[in-house]
Design a protein around this nucleic acid. Structure first.
Lengths: 198, 198
DNA sequence: GTCTATAGGGCGATAGAC
DNA sequence: GTCTATCGCCCTATAGAC
């Protein structure tokens, strides 16, 4: 007795996503996930801090991938060029398993709690990117702004990509949205000092 | 008996913010908030769906204010011009009580759970703004992108404003960051079709 | 307003891997 | 022997049901 099968973490992750997809996030109890994975509920919490975290287990690798992508970038690259490199690196990972990406997306979209968690993950990603840019010499405000603008582009592109049935790539979607962003900004009038809103 | 003092909602809101600031969000129990407000814990949950929601009670008025601001805008305004009007309207409300805004900010920054909730509120605001732009005739992608870009500008401006000691206005901070955003985008090279990342 | 189920944390014991 | 994964039982606050 007490003979435990290794790989509990992975089994818990699988079981959770299956159950969330089958019957919904809120309708799934931690004890059920644990049961399907062949462990106790207590073990679940040793691997994942809470029920939501299971769906975001891979995000640290995204952060590493973007950091790697920026390491090999030319030293004189502009802030937005670097952001684009980071987005492309992210896109490659996410789009490497489109079916999983879309399943995840469907689960998250159905549950405000999970949407909340996703947003803070995006925010963490943006923060990491901003720090990276800052270390490259950009000032904090510029780094923060560029990173957040990049995330705005990425999220919009992902939304479009996820709702189409896979005839175009995520990277192409990012290209298209980035170009839109350019035009949008060019259209917006320069507001000279002294011409401020009341 | 049955004699209750009106204004429970407001008292609960005050009590919650006081206690969150005094001893931290997690260390504060709902029963303590209720006690300080002179009601039962059950009453707390009738006014606020959960512990976090207390800090975001005023956000619906922000949404209304931005909607109003866009109603009076010229019909031929560009997407980013409209976004700027919305941000300025938001800034006016938020900056009308700078001390409160900064206290709130400090509580939220100290607690990931609250940060999460704040992000979804911002996202909801962005969604509402995007819908508004969409109804004005902009296509969904453009509306979504413009709204999210606007929020990126707003949040960066707010961060800068909140960490300085009130010698400049929030609206000025937004102006400055918007101008930065323009320059950042202009610097970023146009990527012609066919020149995509590997 | 009361009652209850679930999330999630703390602690000590145990059973494997090394 | 050490180190780490797992268990099981205790506990409390949240949040929803009645």
């Amino acid at each position: 007795m007490g003979r435990w099968i290794p790989g509990a973490r992975a089994r818990l992750g699988e079981a959770a996503i299956e159950l969330y997809a089958e019957r919904g996030f809120e309708q799934t109890m931690v004890s059920e996930i644990a049961e399907r994975a062949g462990v106790t509920a207590r073990t679940f919490f040793r691997h994942y801090t809470d029920k939501r975290e299971v769906l975001f287990a891979g995000w640290s690798s995204l952060q590493e991938a973007t950091a790697d992508a920026l390491e090999t970038a030319p030293a004189d690259a502009s802030a937005m060029e670097l952001v684009r490199l980071a987005l492309d690196a992210t896109a490659q990972i996410v789009a490497s398993d489109p079916a999983r990406a879309r399943t995840r997306q469907a689960i998250i979209a159905a549950t405000p709690e999970l949407h909340e968690r996703e947003l803070i993950k995006f925010d963490t990603l943006a923060k990491a990117l901003a720090d990276n840019l800052h270390h490259r010499g950009f000032d904090p405000t510029e780094a923060e702004l560029a990173a957040r603008t990049g995330l705005a582009i990425y999220r919009t592109a992902f939304d479009r990509w996820a709702e189409t049935d896979g005839d175009s790539t995520l990277t192409e979607a990012i290209d298209a949205v980035a170009e839109r962003h350019r035009r949008l900004t060019l259209e917006s009038p320069h507001r000279p000092p002294g011409d401020q809103a009341v």
